[in-house]
């Protein structure tokens, strides 16, 4: 088994301007935030971000690194609308491809299966189809269930990714990864849809230890699909990473409030972005210490 260990900075070093980058997790849940933070410290630009969106999308938009967002929602869950993304979109700062959550899944699946599209009922009649030329239809070559002529379906195009970034609870040095929370989301599919995939994890473990942590059903990402792995404890902060930790709601509120003005954003950026990951985690520790006292 190869040793695929990297640092978060190494991962960001593999990214290029203009890339299409898939980010795992869902909303404000198990996002690879340590990698997003490292991206924010880089000079990357013109990215296409493909995400069941949360603060990953908001942060990259606020930092003006994004040309286009492919999304079905961008939400902080406990705060329904992502304020930084809203500002970018309302200002016309980002282009979009707007999809139903299931169309999004099918786009990733088509890319993973190396087919140009997958047919679906989803999207018919909606403005995801009617107002976006990128989404087209296909006529079934088969009779309908009631013997009628072939019906028209949405041909959801493949969403191939240059790079996938996902965060898992545990991984080994070969890039096998394990989720221990209630939902994998679509992290496996993100990796399968991508030319190159990087996994970050709360903790690197020996391969033999996966079985002590959860049933084999939690080992959903094989090293077949991953090209690099980095251990980054608390690396999903401030999103949830159940059962290792839940969302930091107080921190998330401050992040959302930083969308109130350019000055508030600059202040928040100075406090929480323009510092190393080690300093970020140390500041969090000192906040927690203050809160506990």
């Amino acid at each position: 088994m190869p040793d695929k260990r990297m640092t978060v900075e190494d991962i960001v070093g593999e990214l290029r301007d203009g890339m299409t980058i898939g980010i795992g997790g869902w909303g404000s849940r198990r996002k690879p935030m340590a990698v997003v933070r490292a991206m924010l410290r880089s000079s990357l630009k013109d990215l296409t971000v493909v995400s069941y969106g949360g603060p990953d999308v908001g942060l990259l938009c606020a930092a003006r690194m994004v040309r286009k967002v492919v999304f079905a929602f961008v939400s902080l869950d406990s705060i329904a609308l992502e304020p930084h993304f809203r500002i970018a979109k309302q200002n016309g700062a980002v282009a979009t491809l707007e999809l139903d959550e299931g169309m999004f899944l099918l786009g990733l699946q088509a890319a993973a299966w190396r087919v140009p599209f997958l047919p679906t009922r989803v999207g018919l009649g909606s403005d995801a189809l009617e107002k976006q030329d990128e989404i087209r239809t296909v006529t079934s070559p088969y009779e309908s269930a009631d013997g009628g002529p072939g019906e028209e379906f949405v041909a959801m195009p493949a969403l191939p990714l240059d790079v996938a970034l996902v965060h898992q609870n545990r991984a080994d040095i070969g890039g096998n990864a394990q989720f221990l929370g209630p939902d994998l989301y679509f992290d496996d599919l993100m990796c399968q849809a991508a030319a190159t995939s990087f996994v970050t994890c709360e903790q690197l473990v020996d391969t033999a230890d996966f079985a002590k942590l959860g049933s084999p059903h939690t080992q959903r990402i094989s090293r077949l699909w991953t090209d690099g792995v980095a251990e980054t404890p608390n690396g999903a902060h401030f999103t949830s990473c159940t059962p290792d930790y839940e969302r930091d709601e107080a921190f998330q509120k401050e992040y959302a409030a930083a969308a109130a003005s350019p000055e508030a954003w600059q202040q928040w950026r100075a406090n929480w972005i323009d510092i190393s990951e080690a300093d970020y985690q140390a500041r969090l520790d000192s906040r927690r210490g203050l809160a506990a006292r």
């Binding site: 079905a72 609308l81 959550e101 169309m103």
Partner: peptide, 14 residues
Amino acid sequence: RPKSQLLGFRGAPG
């Protein structure tokens, strides 16, 4: 380019 960006399509079309 909306006046007010809301949730997105979420699962409504499907």
